[in-house]
Structure formats: C-alpha cells, structure tokens
Design a protein around this nucleic acid. Structure first.
Lengths: 243, 243
DNA sequence: CGCCATATTGAAATATCTCAAGGGCAGTGG
DNA sequence: CCACTGCCCTTGAGATATTTCAATATGGCG
C-alpha cells in the first residue's frame, strides 16, 4: 500500500489515468534525490545544464536580471513542477533558477527522460501536457502584467497559485502556506514592494484574502475571483497532445 | 540558380548550415500554399487545430482577449515564423491568431513535420532552435512589461522587430516597413493608444527613431539601444539542441 | 459627401513609484 | 542577558508616469 506518491505523480494523475507500469517508470525518474539550500542558484543566467530536476519539496523561483539590476520573476515552481526542462531540451537557459527555501529535487538526465518517453508514450503525453500548461501560465502572466491593475494582478496571482497547489495537495479553497516575501511578489507582479504591501492591505481590509506570516487565507473566494477576473480554464485545459 | 528562398530557410540558414537535401525537405514543407485575408482569425481562442503554418508573407498577431474585453498581444509573427506550431504539438490553443494584412502561409500537417524530423535530424534541431527563440522572446516581452517604462518598452520593441526582420531580409539598421497601427503597439506593450502616440512623438523629437506612414526609421540606432537597454543576446543565442 | 479607422493634442484624474522613516523579530556575538 | 544587525513588513507624503475623457485632424473609400 504505502507507496509515497510524488507530487508530480499526483499532478499528472489528475489529468491522465496512468497504469501501474507507467507509475513505476515515473517513480523511477525520482531516484537521484538531491537537496539544495535556499538562495544559491541552481542554474545561472546564461549557463546551460545537463540535467533537469523534478521538484519534490520546497519552492523555487525563475527570474531574469535586467542590465539595470532590477529583477523580473518569470514564474515560481512548486512541488511536482519541472526545473530547467526547457533549458535542457533546448540547450539554452536565459534565466536564473533559485531555491526560495531548502528544496528537495530529483535529478533527471536527458537520456533517462527520453528513454522513459520511449517506454511509455502515455507518460510522454502527460509530461508534455505539463509543459504546455507551464507555457500557458507564462502567457497568462504576461497578460496580467500588460492588462491588469495591481489589485487584479495580485488577486489573480494568489488564486492561480492556490489552484496549482491544490493539485498537489498543498492547498484548497481555504488557503495555503506560502513562503514568498512581499519582495518576491513585487518582482513577479512588476510592482514596487511598497505597493505590494498596500495592495495586500486593501485586499485584506476588503475581506477578500489575507496573506500574513507565510499563510494565504481566502476570506471570500468568489469575491477575489471577481476582482481578478479569474478564469482557471488555462490551468486545466483539455487533455492534450499527440499520443 | 534561381531557387526562390523562403524566409524560413533564410532564417534557419543564418544559424545552421543546411545541406542540399535538408534544404530540399525544408522547401517541400512549403508546398501547400494558402492565402488568408486580413482581420479574419486563423485560429480562434480556445479552438485547437490540426495544422500549423509557416508564414511566407505578411504579418500576423497572436493575442489573448480578456474577460473585460481588453486585448493583450502576446507576439507578432513575421515571414519565416511558425504559426500555431505549439498549438498543434500540444493540442491546445489559448489564444487567437489573426492576420494583420493579407498573408501567404504554407500549411504543414503534423505528420509531414514529424516525417521531416525523422529524415533530417539537423533540420529538427534548427526548427527547435526557432521554437526556443520564440519562447525567449515571450519571456523578454514579459520582462519588458514588468520592468521597463513606456519609452524603453517601445524602443526595445522596435529594435527587436528590426533584428528579427533583418534575419529574413526585410530590415536593417536603417529601418523597415511595418504595417502595425498604434493600437497594435498599445495592445502589445500594455499601454493606451494615446500614450503610444506620445511616446512615439518623444522618441522622434529626441532624434532616435521615426515611425510614420508604415515605416520605421532608426535615426540614431545606438541611442535607441541605450534607451531600451537592448541586449540582443536572447535573439541569437548559441547553437542549441540535442541532435 | 459622409463615414470609418487612424493619428494627434490638451487637460484633468488616477495609479503607482520613490523617498523617508519606523517597527518587529530572529540570529549572532559580546 | 543584552545590544546589534539584517531582513521583512508597514505607513505617510510628495513626485511621476500613465490613463481617461474630450476634441480635432487626416486620408481612404463607398
């Protein structure tokens, strides 16, 4: 019974029913477990790596540093997400990847991954689904920066994260634990940290959501959805893929 | 001699030296030529398509409509770019694709593409390079929206477009023809059309760049690069890929 | 001619930033 | 135990960038 299910397995299982053998292959990818401490870059901007990782525990941030020194966060990764998969497949990493807290991740060599794909096409399908979802999130993020005001951006961000975390059992409509600082939010949402603070206060005072002491609590989920104009369609889009 | 070289071939040749047979396969992909008129969506938001296209002539815009009706442009495609490649590979299109002018495009069935890949791995490499470059552009776009002010955003955008067009012989350091309206720029850069107008005026009065009557003229290229903090590294990154 | 899309400009309103300052709390070294 | 430092959060007030509203100009086109 007691087979500890990895977050990635959990996430993929929500969308594709995987057979026992497929699950076996998937778990085997998690063998080379490693730890990394917070704050030290996993991948430096401009460097290209040999291996990808599957995040098992902890939070990671992907960012890009501007010539003027400011930082734009492209995305956060949570357990079950791939790290640097694209960098490996495309031999190019133009952004940095840094653990926010101490993390656990499984190292996956390209060859292992390709072999797993060959063995179990349905698994390949599922993983490509995850990749396409990541891309959809980046696009949605771009839309948010271009077309939403600060309140909506923040609301949308917190809601999206909630949905993502729920998929791996780390969140619900009630809320979730979240180790991000207001500076992280600022760099992700294209705001100043000061304004992030004000926005959070406003959302809290409006009885919509409370982010405090590392915990996000949805005080009024539907109200927040309205503020954000949140439509989670892009997160659970139809079963994808050639397969 | 006179083999009319497609823009895609031109673009890829700038990065990977392709053999005669590879060039042949590439040109064969261009066989099913079609025209589409301006303004009618090629792909509707939410719809998923069977075929991808290689743009041969004209300009195309990829955008996403918000629930509130506003539009965010994700990217523009110019000759030599793929349309809907990701949508096809991942069976998911969450954004619309619309020709800006009358366009010519070659329809490519997934099967043709996969077969071409099997025949010529180096070609697959080259095309994946192009895909990864597209992604880098989206990320750079995201960074611009989050961390650049209106002037820098505009300058960066015009410069990036210049580099892209140069690769297919449609532009140079002097300038290029550009059918975009100020509304297109506004929706791409996350600004109001009115502000776009003012920004263009300022850049023109500062003697940096002139965008008028469908033509972009770089009056002072290096000055514009300075305003934009433009570093084209992400556009011509190292030869990529597993191959 | 009248109409529509695009471009232009001004003035007032608003969102967000910057600068400045202070508070809480955890770790660290005396 | 205390003082100190660093990191994160909070708040206020003035400065700035950008938007909105309103009005006008221009050219193509039925």
């Amino acid at each position: 019974m007691k087979i500890e299910t990895s977050p990635l397995t959990r996430k993929l299982s929500a969308f594709v029913k995987l057979s026992a053998s497929e699950l076996g292959v998937l778990e085997r990818l998690h063998e080379r477990r490693k730890s990394f401490s917070a704050g030290r870059d996993l991948v430096h901007q401009g460097q290209s790596e040999q291996a990808a990782y599957i995040l098992a525990a902890g939070w990671v941030v992907s960012y890009k540093i501007q010539p003027d020194g400011s930082r734009q966060i492209v995305d956060f990764q949570i357990p079950g997400d791939f790290l640097g998969l694209r960098s490996v497949l495309l031999h190019t990493s133009d952004h940095g990847i840094e653990p926010i807290v101490e993390i656990e991740a499984a190292e996956v060599m390209v060859s292992d991954l390709l072999q797993a794909f060959a063995e179990t096409p349905r698994l390949a399908t599922a993983i490509l689904w995850a990749v396409s979802r990541d891309e959809a999130m980046v696009v949605e993020h771009l839309v948010g920066l271009g077309r939403r005001d600060a309140d909506a951006r923040m609301a949308h961000f917190l809601l999206e994260l909630g949905v993502r975390l729920s998929l791996v059992g780390m969140g619900s409509r009630e809320g979730y634990a979240c180790p991000l600082t207001q500076y992280h939010l600022a760099d992700a949402l294209g705001l100043s940290a000061i304004h992030v603070n004000r926005v959070l206060r406003k959302l809290r005072e409006d009885g919509l959501v409370t982010f405090r002491d590392g915990v996000v609590v949805f005080d009024h989920y539907d109200g927040l959805v309205a503020v954000a104009d949140f439509d989670p369609a892009y997160l659970d889009h139809a079963r994808p893929l050639l397969s």
